[in-house]
């Protein structure tokens, strides 16, 4: 999923502390926020936009293309289903600790209704110079600068560091796609790589993965035949097995989900896997030279 400047964004949970703060940042950056949702504050105006009781009301009154959810874990299912039923085609779910079976229900509804979901537990999406959705520091010019590198990351903090290193090395980003740290995600690494591969503004791709699951291995299969050059970093090589490393999805069970397995798959697809994020500029330069 990639968000671009013209898209109209709904903020569910706009009146909360984080919703308010980040709506302000998004607006300053140029994101086209058109409305917010809070069932208890329908009719109010918040951050300069109308607040509706539901996403359905917002769709009827103003219309929107993307909904971003600043909603507590146990409220996510109802809010996301509301947006999907309203006809929303793109949802960004930032919330961490959403019950997994709720996530599965939301993703099943999204599938039936043709909606794409980023997250849960994502820091959001950025198109430098145009807009961002979520809580990424898009406004930090040393980190996000318009360019041609597409970045897909499970982690917000690590993705941010990679972007910083890219900009320090003279690159800029065409899109940052935060897919989230949960074990079950609406947009997988492979889904994000596909959209970046299809994106005209993207010339090269950086995959920022971590231990747990098999998403990087699946992406590697696709990347085998991908023309655009790519490099990758996989976090968690030094983590002990059997422990959830902060992200619910970051856990090694037996020989599944290891850093070594992901590295092997990516290298077999011709993707250089970095030892440290600081190498991203050098490696990308080399990959582009070859490409």
């Amino acid at each position: 999923m990639i968000v671009r400047g013209g898209q109209r964004v709904l903020v569910q949970g706009i009146t909360g502390k984080q919703g308010t703060f980040w709506t302000g940042r998004m607006q300053e950056y140029g994101t086209r926020i058109v409305a917010g949702v809070n069932p208890k504050k329908a009719g109010a105006v918040h951050c300069g936009v109308p607040v509706y009781a539901s996403a359905r009301d917002a769709m009827r009154e103003t219309g929107f293309d993307v909904s971003v959810l600043f909603i507590p874990p146990l409220g996510v299912k109802a809010a996301a289903l509301d947006a999907i039923e309203a006809g929303c085609r793109r949802l960004v779910v930032l919330t961490e600790h959403v019950p997994v079976q709720d996530v599965m229900e939301v993703l099943a509804a999204a599938r039936v209704n043709g909606a794409a979901v980023a997250g849960p537990n994502t820091a959001g999406l950025v198109t430098p110079g145009e807009c961002f959705v979520g809580f990424m520091p898009a406004f930090e010019r040393g980190i996000f600068r318009p360019g041609s590198v597409g970045v897909v990351s499970r982690s917000g903090s690590l993705g941010t560091l990679i972007c910083l290193n890219l900009v320090q090395a003279g690159f800029g980003e065409s899109a940052f796609v935060g897919i989230g740290g949960d074990p079950i995600l609406g947009t997988t690494t492979c889904d994000a790589v596909r959209s970046l591969d299809a994106d005209e503004r993207t010339d090269a791709i950086v995959v920022v993965g971590e231990i747990g699951g098999t998403m990087e291995e699946e992406a590697a299969e696709y990347m085998q035949d991908m023309r655009k050059p790519a490099v990758a970093f996989i976090a968690g090589g030094a983590s002990p097995p059997g422990k959830k490393m902060g992200h619910a999805g970051a856990i090694v069970m037996g020989d599944k989900g290891t850093c070594a397995s992901k590295r092997k798959a990516l290298e077999a697809a011709g993707v250089e896997v970095l030892d440290t994020p600081s190498d991203v500029g050098r490696a990308l330069g080399a990959a582009l030279g070859r490409g």
Binding site: S153, R154, S155, G156, S157, L158, G159, T160, L161, G181, V208, E210, I211, F233, A235, G236, G237, A238, S239, K243, M245, G246, H247, A250, D275, T276, P277
Partner: peptide, 23 residues
């Protein structure tokens, strides 16, 4: 801050020949 960055910090400590004391 952040799980990904914390794991990475541990990885890079290991990469430079050190041993992390905690996550």
């Amino acid at each position: 801050n952040g799980a990904g960055l914390t794991m990475t910090t541990m990885d890079v400590i290991t990469h430079h020949g050190g041993r992390p004391a905690n996550f």
